[in-house]
Nucleic acid binder design. Structure first.
Length: 517
DNA sequence: TAGCACCAC
DNA sequence: ACCCGTGGTGCTA
């Protein structure tokens, strides 16, 4: 028998508690009082899942803050494998659970001081203790909550989609004069460009592209293109959303339990999987039908709270651009404002506003005339003019972009409002190769903006956790609350979210209420 | 497993 | 033809 003391290195698994001390791993049955201690973890989420309350250190998150580039979605490697290799030059020796636990605990023992010092030097200790570890607890709660699915409705939708798909499929075969696998880009391109002799528009590595842009262009010439677009949309929605969600519904609770990866991105955003709840359709009419399948429990109701224009507000804050700051201080329609500058007139129609909106987003992504011209389907020279007009008006934004790139070239990293950082390899940002260099430049610009937005939503998550969060979709939180408390809750949530940080422009949160998403 | 395609913010 | 940022997922070959 042994005690768990404050600041012990601990793991909990299958109702056993493990502790690393003096080179030895101790194991015994978990006791309730173990959960009251302030402990050090390899991965706090696993401990929070086992009801630990106070976690003082998390090796995986500490490593993520020091260098967020390892997004585990990009590799099949587990954090333990990655950390052993990166810091200790070791391979994961044994693969049974107990041995892995032992290696995790030992890694904490060996690396904690080093990483804590590193975080101190980078002024990121607070980010770990006050943001990431608490967020880990919030994520744990969100994953436990899950979200209810109306399976009857979804099954009905599935039938409807399948009927439509069959019909469209038949149509396509008739128009093509042959049966083939529409889901195979290879076979499709053979039908379009050989059999039907349509003109290819662009190439991929392996042949001619059949993407949406191409098919949109081809629909001017041949009716099959439009049918294929319809087929694609329906098929995508059915397989990725309806089928997969149905397969993930817990038959007892009628809920799905999406998981979140706290080190899933290089910017600080959280990613989601099983299913990727952050990509539930919303833009198309059919997509919105799928949203309706997510319902609140009896007696409960959803509160959706999303930050309005958060990334542009952050750009205003970071750049201190006079005109952009002014726009947000006065709650202007900022896409409209940009359109007026681009088109040099007051009266802006919907199409022109769309152009302004695209340009505003393009700035955040690190703009290039080429990219903008493709996005807007306009001449590259015109795109160039638009960008010049933009920067001529938003001079502070232009200056901030230049300064940020310079900072990265000299320091080898960029940072967010909360001092989250992303390493920018000097060899990349200073590369002779224009494509490589400009790609890193775009990352330099996008990361502080996207990353600061994630800083803000993370504070919001921590402060609103008591309201029963069921989803996090980057700049949006969805809560499931008692119907009779909806008014006070939504007021409080909005208040909390709008005041997580005091920026040079106000944060604005839009709140919606509903029985489905 | 890579490549394509496409959903979201 | 080319990357305008961050992801996850389903399909084919």
């Amino acid at each position: 028998d042994f005690e768990i003391d404050d600041f012990d290195i601990v793991e909990i698994y299958n109702n056993f508690v493990y502790k690393f001390k003096d080179g030895i791993v101790y194991k015994r049955v978990l006791k309730p009082e173990d959960l009251e201690k302030r402990i050090l973890a390899f991965d706090s989420k696993s401990l929070f899942k086992n009801n630990a309350k106070f976690i003082e250190f998390d090796l995986v998150l500490a490593d993520y803050l020091v260098d967020p580039e390892f997004a585990s979605n990009k590799s099949t490697i587990e954090p333990i494998e990655y950390i052993l290799l990166k810091y200790l030059g070791q391979k994961l020796n044994f693969k049974n659970n107990e041995q892995i636990i032992a290696q995790k605990l030992k890694a904490v023992y060996l690396l904690k001081d080093e990483l804590e010092n590193e975080l101190k030097n980078l002024e990121m200790e607070k980010l770990l203790k006050e943001i990431e570890i608490p967020v880990s607890k919030v994520i744990c709660d969100i994953e436990r909550n899950g979200i209810k699915v109306d399976t009857d409705y979804l099954l009905h939708l599935k039938k409807e989609f399948e009927t439509n798909l069959k019909e469209i499929e038949k149509n396509i075969y008739e128009l093509a004069g042959i049966r083939f696998n529409i889901n195979s880009p290879k076979q499709l391109s053979d039908v379009l460009f050989n059999k039907l002799k349509l003109k290819p528009i662009k190439k991929t590595k392996t042949g001619y592209s059949t993407d949406t842009e191409t098919l949109l262009e081809l629909s001017k010439i041949h009716p099959i293109a439009k049918k294929i677009l319809e087929y694609r949309e329906l098929f995508k929605l059915k397989t990725t959303y309806i089928d997969s969600i149905l397969s993930l519904v817990n038959p007892i609770t009628k809920r799905i339990y999406p998981q979140y990866n706290q080190r899933g991105t290089s910017t600080g955003r959280i990613s989601a999987f099983n299913p990727n709840i952050q990509t539930i359709p919303i833009k198309s009419e059919l997509g919105r039908k799928i949203r309706k399948a997510f319902i609140s429990d009896e007696g409960k109701i959803f509160i959706k709270a999303d930050y309005s224009q958060i990334e542009l507000r952050i750009l205003a804050h970071l750049s201190e651009d006079e005109n952009l700051v002014y726009a947000f201080l006065n709650d202007f329609d900022v896409h409209m404002a940009t359109s007026r500058i681009i088109f040099q007139k007051d009266d802006i129609n919907d199409e022109e506003r769309r152009v302004g909106k695209t340009i505003n987003f393009a700035i955040i992504y690190g703009i290039s005339p080429y990219g903008l011209s493709k996005q807007l389907n306009i001449d590259e020279n015109l795109a160039k003019q638009f960008i010049e007009s933009y920067f001529n008006y938003y001079k502070g934004v232009k200056m901030w972009i230049e300064e940020t790139k310079k900072f990265a070239r000299e320091n080898g990293f960029v940072k967010t409002i909360l001092n989250r950082r992303r390493i920018i390899p000097k060899i990349g940002i200073n590369s002779q190769n224009k494509v490589i260099r400009e790609a890193w430049e775009r990352i330099c610009i996008n990361t502080p903006v996207q990353g600061s937005a994630s800083d803000i939503i993370k504070i919001a998550m921590i402060r609103t956790n008591k309201y029963n969060i069921v989803l996090q979709i980057h700049d949006e939180l969805v809560f499931e609350v008692d119907e009779n408390k909806v008014e006070t809750c939504s007021k409080e949530i909005k208040e909390i979210m709008e005041n997580v940080l005091n920026l040079k422009v106000p944060l604005k949160v839009d709140v919606e209420i509903g029985k489905n998403l």
